[in-house]
């Protein structure tokens, strides 16, 4: 397949991701912003597919597009009493823009100057089986720490959500 044809899906997905991200900031309605966020997450899942990272694409769809965006919508639903509360003023401050521009320039310079090391690319894309084996053998320590982190989050959430002393 010629380069130019292979680039088409990438360009489409990248445009969807960047445009959606801009719409998250620009849309006045919080609920609309949440749906644009969902669109960004799905576009990123597509980008993972292009990189043959099937498992990551699946996780992106299930965890981010599936769970996180529903969580965002639930939060919006539970915290807003009236329909009008979902509207917010468009707050575009210069300082935030400057910081964003600075980060863009820095990361852009980094990406442009990055030279991919030749030896690293594996012959075959590792699949879900290899990923799982790695996770439960070599990566057992970080995996266990992650579960402790989740336990901490649970204890904290229960504390804050709890009512008077029982």
């Amino acid at each position: 397949m010629p380069e130019s044809v292979a680039a088409v899906p990438f360009i489409v997905l990248a445009a969807l991701a960047v445009g959606g991200a801009a719409m998250v900031i620009l849309s006045r309605n919080v609920v609309h912003a949440a749906f644009w966020l969902l669109e960004v997450m799905m576009a990123v899942a597509g980008l993972f597919m292009l990189l043959s990272a099937g498992f990551l694409a699946l996780v992106q769809m299930m965890v981010y597009a599936g769970a996180v965006s529903v969580l965002v919508l639930f939060t919006v639903m539970l915290t807003l009493r009236r329909r009008e509360d979902a509207e917010r003023p468009l707050d575009l401050s210069w300082s935030a823009g400057l910081i964003a521009l600075g980060v863009f320039v820095a990361v852009g310079a980094a990406v442009v100057s990055f030279v991919p090391p030749a030896v690293m690319a594996p012959v075959r894309t590792p699949g879900v089986t290899e990923f799982g084996t790695q996770l439960f053998t070599q990566r057992a320590l970080p995996f266990e720490i992650a579960s402790v982190v989740l336990l901490i989050a649970l204890v904290g959430a229960v504390w804050w959500a709890g009512g008077e002393d029982r």
């Binding site: 992650a146 402790v148 989050a153 204890v155 904290g156």
Partner: peptide, 25 residues
């Protein structure tokens, strides 16, 4: 001695701190 372990340990050390700082609920 590993970046991923370091990141997760950092989270495990700071996440309780959020709750402690807001303990007066």
């Amino acid at each position: 001695r590993d970046w991923i372990v370091l990141l997760l340990a950092l989270e495990a050390a700071t996440m309780p701190a959020y709750v402690l700082m807001g303990f007066d609920r």
